[in-house]
Structures are given as structure tokens and as C-alpha cells.
Design a protein around this nucleic acid. Sequence first.
DNA 1: GCGACAG
DNA 2: ATCTTGTCGC
Length: 227
Amino acid sequence: MQIRKLHSWHVDPAEARDIQRRLATQVSRQPAPGAVDLIAGVDVSTNDRLGIARAAVVVLRYPDLAVQENSTVEEDLTFLYIPGLLSFREAPAVFRAFERISSAPDLVMIDGQGIAHPRRLGIASHVGLILDIPTIGVAKSILVGRHRELPDEPGAWVQMFDRDEVVGAAVRTKRGVKPVYVSIGHKVDLPVAISWTLNCCRSYRLPEPTRLAHLAAASRLPIIGRY
DNA sequence: GCGACAG
DNA sequence: ATCTTGTCGC
């Protein structure tokens, strides 16, 4: 798929935060109409010792969730991990991976926050905006926001608040385990983000797109077999 | 000023 | 994120 433009990633943290505040105003929190046949999962693994990021984009067909395509690429790391600035570290590798897929996913689930972010521009929103594609942030832990306890029942969810603003939802995808933290990335609303997350869950805490992308980014995605 | 802090 | 096997608990 074609990437419109890349940003300059060699920026200092203060400039990065400025860019985020500017881009955040362009994020769409409304769902884009259209059928969803292909869902992509995105994850990045990093190795500071080697200075390398490995990004994986795994495209699944819906509803069977069979793997249609897998693009895994490596990219030099040029940015430290700073809470709130994750996309400046990991997104370049993600864009590289997207350049090498032939199909066009209708929806992308990204490991990390969407608007549940101090400046409302987590990596899921940033990537969605640049690619101009609907994205959902599915994080394993919280960056900002608080929530009430939620029932230990698959499908249960509660809103997450930053101050008095709803920034996402804690979603129980499986009994007896921590919830995942779902937020709008781009071109979806919160109900849509939550329902697609649940739609894509099988036997694990993480929805299949993100779970398989994580395996791929860690080079643990077998060509054959049940996993 | 102090603590919190996606991956 | 990453270093990493077996073990404890539901």
C-alpha cells in the first residue's frame, strides 16, 4: 500500500509534543462507513542492544480470522522510548511494514493507545491519521485514564476517564485476566472500537490481529499450525 | 515538588 | 520492549 508522506522523525521531545498537539486536531472520532473484510494487526518489538525495531503487520480475513498476509520488517531505532512519545520510536517501522503489503485492510488494530493519551495522539491515532485508515488502539496497560472495576465476564467493559473526558474503555476479553484498554485510533467511535475488539477475540486475552502481530514481530508466527 | 508513565 | 523454566493457583 502507498504511504502519502513520512514525517521527520529526528525531532526533539518538545517538538514531538508540538506535532502531536497539531495532529490530534485532525483525528476523526466518527466511524467511516463500509464493510470490514480485512483486519490488520500491528505490533513492534524492539532490541536496544542492536538498535533495531521489528514491525509486523498481519492481515486477517473477517470473520474467519485466517491469515491473509504478513509483512515483517526491521528498521533502525532513532528515538528513545519516552512515555507519550512511543509513535516517534515505533511508527517509522510500522509504515515500512505497510509499504510492503499488497492488500488494503479495512480496519487496523494497533498494540498501544489511540486517543487515550496525554495529548490524544497515541500510536494508533498517529498511524491511522498518516495512513488515512480506520484504526483502533488496543493496549495491555494504561498510559492515562482511570476506570471503575468491571465484571469478570467476557464482553464486559467500562469507560476510562481522563479528568472528566472519556478516552477509552477497559474491556474484558477473557475471564480471569486483566482487561485490555481500547481507544479510538482514527475514523472509528468507541462503540465500534469495542465491538471489533470483542469480535476478534478467540481464546486469548488479546484479539487475534494484535496477538498474531505480536508473535510475528517476535518471529514466533509459524507458517503452519494452530496457535 | 512528587509520583506516574503505552511499548 | 527485553532477560526466561518451572511453578503456583483458579
